[in-house]
Design a protein around this nucleic acid. Structure first.
Lengths: 170, 170
DNA sequence: CTCCACACGTGATTC
DNA sequence: TGAATCACGTGTGGA
């Protein structure tokens, strides 16, 4: 009850440890205040408060941006159907997993087709991948089509625009 | 120097104020730790450290998402409406239609344009006419565009599909 | 029993 | 002069 902390050697140890703890905290406070923009008051309370407000703001912004990108990607896939590569398992795929931090943004290729007499035109706007042209061509030829003309154009950083004209072989 | 805190009435006031300040800080700490996901240690130091790390992560993510949306937004397809070429044809419409085997396909040229970064893609689906390519190219070049790639494909009997990739020259 | 983290009261400093 | 903030040393309680 009376004398709690004896052993003067460890007493000084305690005060030293506590001093170190405070220093660490102060350091973290400084670090936190350095990455939060628009800080007017450097109070500990203000730093914490503004940091909280800032984090909430960032979270909200991220949510909005992710919705935007999701909508955008879905919005530009309206043209034809979904592209079905062979050799892929068909699964139910109604998984309701919520997001992880990094969600892969999948871009569905836009495919447009039109026919006139014996000619068929296929236009594909997709991501630039090695071997995609050959894959598409073989895919097309595997049908009743003989390719008459084809053109591949790079567009932007990572996009390809493939135009194919083929004729039906009956 | 000697006696600092006079007025014993205000002495208790001081300790009270300090107590309130601590309470506010603790409250903020709790609030901060509640919005930072994946917290294992509830240490003040750990809360601060993880909050710092989390804020940095959010900032980085926002930067990436904003870049993505920028590209996506610009890349959206814009279907150009009826483009009236400076061709001066007074249409003798409707009167004597020759016996077409099929219904009249739309004669107005379809023009589609999309942009990504500095690249602009223009696709024209129109009737096959002599000199139409040169006309289109000069038309495009007369704008702020330098042509990077172009392709012309015949399609069907009397249709042309022109694809042009150009870059804005500012 | 030894660490570790916390809250407390208190003196000093600043506006 | 107050009011408000800070760092310090210390006691205490939980792993």
């Amino acid at each position: 009850m009376a004398a709690a902390t004896r052993s003067p050697s460890h007493a000084q140890d305690h005060i030293l440890a506590e001093r170190k703890r405070r220093e660490k905290l102060s350091q973290r406070f400084i670090a936190l205040s350095s990455i939060v923009p628009g800080l007017k008051k450097m109070d500990k309370a203000s730093v914490l408060g503004d940091a909280i407000k800032y984090v909430k703001h960032l979270q909200e912004k991220i949510k909005q941006l992710e919705e935007q990108t999701k909508k955008r990607t879905v919005e530009s896939v309206v043209l034809v159907k979904r592209y079905h590569l062979p050799a892929d398992d068909d699964s139910n795929s109604s998984s309701n997993d919520d997001d992880d931090s990094k969600s892969n943004v999948e871009k569905a290729p836009e495919i447009e087709a039109r026919a006139s007499e014996r000619d068929v035109m296929i236009r594909i706007h997709c991501e630039k991948q090695p071997g995609v042209l050959a894959k598409v061509l073989t895919e097309v030829e595997s049908l009743h089509l003989s390719i008459v003309n084809s053109s591949v154009m790079p567009f932007g950083n990572s996009t390809l625009d493939i135009t194919i004209v083929a004729q039906v072989t009956n």
